[in-house]
Nucleic acid binder design. Structure first.
Length: 577
DNA sequence: GCCGTTTTCGGCCCGACTGTTTTCAGTCG
């Protein structure tokens, strides 16, 4: 039973209770717990053996939820959840996913019209039955129909890197609007989340209409969802929603803080404010005296956080995880930046599936100011990419020896290999070959659907191989496309720690593997992370920035990341001579 | 359902916008 399984169960309970119209705070308790558990660095199943008190020490887990976790882990199911599922068919919960339909409307549709599925809802709308319900109307019916088609588009979250393109495009478009004094993209984009659900633009201007008119002329726009005095929402061709807020300059900081979120971060912040007789909203910070309110801050984020004697948290840390605890103990990590990185230890060339030569990759790396790189083409098992057999890899390393002679001092070119971990276990190249490398990466590309124990044992076997220095993309997930394979990361962390091996944060925006939660867990275990681009072309080296963002979300400092060190220091770290 | 120097009850962040109302509920972020 993984943390994700437990979190899924609590999410489902939350959804059903929400649908049933239960106390919203009770619903929130389940959702909070789910989130905390999903992000929790230790395995709850292991903690269950240490007893209930251990579980109750987790924020948001009380007597009741601790008992439910124990039942779930020990028996594999939860009677309460089975009960709820019997009362509300799971297909009904899909109604809640339609934008514009919340628990009240979903319940009305289910109760009054007996609707159980999206197909039935569509039929009811088409027949005009929905608009006759109390609290519904013609407009509501249309919104539901539109919302359903959006849901059917299997609307995926966008990679941060893609969102970043749209941000650049929108910045350019909005730059033509003269009255804009300040403009910032907020929300999950600013927090650097790996995927983005929608984009939020915050603007200071004394001419709201001019700003909204300009956004309305964005060429990609397909629909204006709302337009009020301060807020406007549009949808663009890709299905992405863009929300605009216009505020006065005196509120810019408060609004920037507010719309950057996360929601969880803000809930904690406002709770703290309330305890001190303050109120924080998007317009400012206010001292509450009876029914009078005195405005005391709001122009900058610093002003807002200062009122609570808090640091201006880097946006990447604002997830309501551990940032307030860190701030209270003065241990807010100084997050890694792109310029801290000295080397890149995972990239490909034309020898396998890359598009550039070794020399071209070297030139690109030097242009980017790196001091060392490892060429790590695929091993023979990856036949699709013409992976290297022992003879070819030795030839490549001989070629590297030649290139080295022409390189200036201060730049180090390393003989590396991305060696597959075979399906049956063991490495794809013989030890006497691996022994000649400067840098050996172990990767899983095949047999990703094997059971948990088998995959875990394969990775542990690789970690125990004395020639291996790092495990690449340790969970194999591809965002929006492929789930992580089943692997016992607790065991991987323990083995990496024991054998002094490193784990990768692969900076490819579709991988970002390890994810932020696991990178944070690795940090707690004292296992250095290596941020690599896995570049297949010179431009691919630019992907570093996505890995840095993810590392910052994990709270990693320069020290937590191995390739901020010189190669000489790195060698020592992985026990190479 | 959680939580606690206002501590075992009574709170739980807060406001904008829309549609269906005629003063507000529902939804969203």
């Amino acid at each position: 039973m993984t943390n994700a399984h437990i979190a899924d169960a609590f999410d489902l309970i939350g959804d059903i209770l929400d649908f049933k119209g239960e106390n919203p705070f009770r619903v929130r308790a389940y959702r909070n717990a789910s989130r905390t558990i999903r992000d929790y660095p230790e395995s709850l199943a292991a903690m269950v053996e240490l007893g209930k008190e251990k579980l109750k020490a987790i924020e948001g887990i009380g007597d009741d939820l601790a008992a439910k976790i124990m039942t779930l882990v020990q028996t594999g199911s939860l009677p309460q959840l089975e009960d709820l599922k019997a009362q509300v068919p799971e297909s009904v919960l899909a109604l809640l996913r339609i934008p514009g339909v919340g628990p009240r409307k979903a319940a009305a549709l289910h109760k009054e019209l007996g609707i159980k599925t999206l197909a039935e809802l569509k039929a009811a709308c088409d027949a005009g039955k929905v608009q006759k319900l109390k609290g519904f109307g013609v407009k509501t019916e249309q919104i539901i129909l539109q919302g359903m088609s959006i849901a059917e588009q299997a609307h995926q979250r966008m990679y941060w890197a893609e969102a970043n393109q749209i941000v650049a495009d929108l910045r350019e478009h909005m730059a033509d609007c003269r009255s804009i004094e300040q403009l910032e993209f907020t929300g999950s984009y600013r927090r650097g989340k790996e995927t983005i659900g929608d984009l939020d633009i915050l603007v200071v201007s004394d001419d709201v209409n001019q700003v909204m008119d300009r956004l309305g002329k964005y060429p990609e726009i397909t629909q204006t969802l709302a337009r009020g005095d301060t807020k406007m929402s549009i949808r663009v061709a890709s299905g992405l929603q863009i929300d605009l807020r216009v505020v006065p300059a005196e509120s810019f900081g408060a609004a920037l803080q507010y719309f950057t979120g996360s929601k969880e971060h803000n809930v904690i912040l406002r709770g703290m404010a309330k305890d001190k007789g303050l109120k924080i909203n998007e317009w400012g910070v206010f001292r509450v005296k009876g029914d009078k309110e005195e405005r005391i801050a709001g122009a900058s984020e610093k002003e807002v956080y200062d009122t609570l004697k808090l640091p201006v948290f880097p946006p990447e840390l604002r997830e309501g995880r551990r940032e307030f605890e860190w701030a209270a103990s003065g241990k807010l990590p100084e997050l890694i930046t792109e310029k801290d990185i000295r080397g890149d230890l995972h990239m490909h060339t034309t020898a396998t599936d890359g598009s550039a030569s070794i020399e071209e990759m070297v030139a690109a790396a030097r242009a980017r100011g790196l001091a060392y790189i490892a060429i790590t083409d695929h091993s023979q098992r990856v036949s699709m990419a013409r992976g290297l057999n022992p003879q070819r890899v030795l030839e490549q390393w001989a070629e590297i020896d030649n290139i080295r002679e022409k390189l200036p001092k201060g730049f180090t070119l390393l003989k590396g290999i991305e060696c597959d971990i075979l399906e049956k276990g063991g490495m794809d190249l013989p030890d006497d070959v691996l022994a000649q490398a400067d840098w050996v990466i172990a990767s899983i590309h095949y047999g990703q659907k094997q059971p948990r124990q088998q995959i875990t044992e394969r990775i542990l076997g690789a970690i125990e191989n004395p020639h291996v220095s790092m495990v690449a993309h340790p969970t194999g997930r591809l965002l929006n496309r492929r789930e992580a394979y089943e692997v016992d990361l607790d065991a991987v962390f323990a083995a990496a720690k024991k054998h002094g091996k490193l784990l990768e944060l692969n900076a490819n925006p579709q991988r970002l593997d390890l994810n932020d939660v696991y990178c944070a867990a690795a940090r707690q275990h004292g296992i250095p992370i290596v941020i690599n681009t896995d570049a297949h072309s010179p431009d691919g080296l630019e992907m570093l920035r996505y890995g840095i963002l993810q590392a910052r979300r994990a709270g990693l400092t320069k020290d937590d990341v191995a390739n901020t060190r010189t190669w000489v220091q790195m060698k020592k770290l992985v026990g190479k001579k």
